Simulated assay, not measured.
Amino acid sequence: MLTVHPQIITDTVGKKLVVLPLEEFNAMLEELEDLEDVRLYDEAKREDDGQSISLEDYLKQREARKNG
């Protein structure tokens, strides 16, 4: 689990801001990207219709369409 150490500051107009060390911010971004990858994987699995071909066959078909 990610541990963060936020600091709450108030700017000159009274708006509250959160400040994080850069390393923690970057770690949060990585975690969010990983979660997005999991979400996209889960979505793709739900939409899987069971039909698939190998990459090699796909490339052959694509080349045939390109040349045909």
Score class of each variant (00 low, 15 high):
residue 1 M to E: 07
residue 2 L to Y: 01
residue 2 L to Q: 01
residue 3 T to W: 06
residue 4 V to Y: 01
residue 4 V to Q: 02
residue 5 H to M: 08
residue 5 H to C: 09
residue 6 P to R: 02
residue 6 P to Y: 01
residue 6 P to H: 01
residue 7 Q to L: 15
residue 8 I to R: 14
residue 8 I to D: 10
residue 8 I to P: 03
residue 9 I to Y: 07
residue 11 D to W: 07
residue 11 D to S: 04
residue 11 D to Y: 06
residue 11 D to C: 05
residue 12 T to D: 15
residue 12 T to R: 14
residue 13 V to L: 13
residue 13 V to Y: 11
residue 13 V to C: 12
residue 13 V to F: 13
residue 13 V to K: 15
residue 14 G to L: 06
residue 15 K to M: 13
residue 15 K to W: 08
residue 15 K to L: 14
residue 16 K to M: 12
residue 17 L to Q: 08
residue 17 L to S: 02
residue 17 L to A: 01
residue 18 V to D: 05
residue 19 V to M: 05
residue 19 V to N: 03
residue 19 V to H: 02
residue 20 L to Q: 03
residue 20 L to D: 02
residue 20 L to P: 02
residue 21 P to R: 11
residue 21 P to L: 09
residue 21 P to I: 06
residue 22 L to T: 09
residue 22 L to A: 11
residue 23 E to H: 00
residue 23 E to Q: 03
residue 23 E to D: 08
residue 24 E to C: 06
residue 24 E to Q: 08
residue 24 E to W: 02
residue 25 F to T: 03
residue 25 F to M: 10
residue 26 N to S: 07
residue 26 N to D: 12
residue 26 N to E: 15
residue 27 A to T: 01
residue 28 M to K: 08
residue 29 L to A: 04
residue 29 L to M: 09
residue 29 L to K: 10
residue 31 E to G: 02
residue 33 E to G: 02
residue 33 E to Y: 01
residue 34 D to H: 10
residue 35 L to W: 05
residue 35 L to M: 12
residue 35 L to H: 06
residue 36 E to H: 08
residue 36 E to Q: 15
residue 37 D to H: 10
residue 37 D to E: 13
residue 37 D to Q: 13
residue 37 D to I: 05
residue 38 V to C: 00
residue 38 V to K: 09
residue 39 R to P: 05
residue 40 L to D: 14
residue 40 L to T: 11
residue 40 L to I: 11
residue 40 L to C: 09
residue 40 L to Y: 08
residue 41 Y to Q: 15
residue 41 Y to R: 15
residue 41 Y to I: 13
residue 41 Y to H: 13
residue 42 D to G: 05
residue 43 E to K: 13
residue 43 E to Q: 13
residue 43 E to C: 10
residue 44 A to K: 10
residue 44 A to E: 11
residue 44 A to L: 10
residue 45 K to H: 09
residue 46 R to W: 04
residue 47 E to M: 13
residue 47 E to K: 12
residue 47 E to L: 13
residue 49 D to L: 06
residue 49 D to V: 03
residue 49 D to A: 05
residue 49 D to P: 03
residue 50 G to F: 03
residue 50 G to T: 00
residue 51 Q to C: 04
residue 51 Q to Y: 04
residue 52 S to L: 03
residue 52 S to K: 05
residue 52 S to M: 04
residue 53 I to L: 00
residue 53 I to C: 00
residue 53 I to K: 00
residue 54 S to Y: 01
residue 55 L to M: 09
residue 55 L to K: 06
residue 55 L to T: 09
residue 55 L to F: 11
residue 55 L to E: 06
residue 55 L to S: 05
residue 56 E to P: 04
residue 57 D to K: 13
residue 57 D to L: 10
residue 58 Y to E: 10
residue 58 Y to K: 10
residue 58 Y to C: 09
residue 59 L to D: 07
residue 59 L to R: 10
residue 61 Q to T: 05
residue 61 Q to F: 11
residue 62 R to D: 13
residue 62 R to A: 15
residue 62 R to E: 14
residue 62 R to C: 13
residue 63 E to Y: 11
residue 64 A to Q: 12
residue 65 R to H: 09
residue 65 R to S: 11
residue 66 K to S: 11
residue 67 N to A: 10
residue 68 G to Q: 01
residue 68 G to H: 02
residue 68 G to Y: 00
residue 68 G to M: 00
